[in-house]
């Protein structure tokens, strides 16, 4: 564990707490892409299949349980209590391409052809693009609530900081894995426009609006 990974994990934790707070406070899931939330649920379930077979630490297990449980809770609540508060007509990104693309990528690029390893790799590739339905929806509406922008910033910073963690681990431990590195880079590039608007507008107290 190093400071980049710890802060990254805490940013990830914070992002989910901010999202739960947004939904509770505004009593609405408006502006949140259900499809992105569904993809994150698939990402965490497929990545943490080793939950019961591979013990790392209490920290590791607690975080895994939290990420699976919270993403499941959000997907469930968006379909139940908050079903009427968000508009599926705005959430039109075709996630079949992302699900299929990640499957093809993990079948071609993986380190071991085993059940757990393939699902882990699938989750890595899928996470890289899971934000696309959310970004697509925001590009259609052209704006986002400030709390939603904070949520997305924390979520994007999490994987961005993991990229820094991988560079640091390579320098200090000689540890290197190019699949998560490349996927993390892809995700960070996809976030570039969002980060630009976040830093230039939201952090200066203005509303998140696309030019």
């Amino acid at each position: 564990m190093n400071v980049f990974r710890l802060v990254a994990d805490l940013m990830h934790l914070a992002s989910i707490l901010i999202l739960l707070l947004k939904i509770r406070k505004t009593r609405s899931a408006a502006g949140i892409s259900f499809k992105s939330q569904l993809l994150y649920l698939i990402v965490f379930v497929t990545r943490y299949l080793d939950l019961f077979t591979h013990w790392v630490s209490l920290y590791n297990t607690a975080m895994k349980v939290f990420f699976i449980a919270s993403s499941g809770y959000i997907v469930y609540q968006m379909q139940r209590r908050y079903r009427a508060t968000w508009d599926p007509a705005l959430d039109t990104f075709r996630i079949e391409f992302l699900l299929g693309g990640a499957a093809v990528m993990s079948l071609i690029f993986h380190t071991k052809f085993t059940f757990l390893e393939l699902f882990w790799t699938y989750s890595i590739w899928l996470e890289a693009v899971a934000i696309l339905p959310q970004l697509f929806q925001m590009s259609r509406t052209g704006e986002a609530e400030t709390i939603t922008a904070h949520y997305l910033f924390a979520l994007g910073a999490y994987r961005g900081l993991y990229v820094v963690n991988w560079i640091y681990r390579y320098a200090t431990e000689g540890y290197w894995e190019w699949i998560p590195f490349l996927a993390g880079m892809v995700q960070t590039v996809l976030y570039a426009d969002f980060f630009y608007v976040y830093f230039s507008r939201v952090m200066r107290g203005k509303k998140f609006e696309l030019p």
Binding site: D9, W120, N165, E173, Y175, E177
Partner: peptide, 10 residues
């Protein structure tokens, strides 16, 4: 201790 294959990460 680090685990091979990055499985100590989240």
């Amino acid at each position: 201790a680090s685990v091979a294959g990055g499985k100590d990460e989240l």
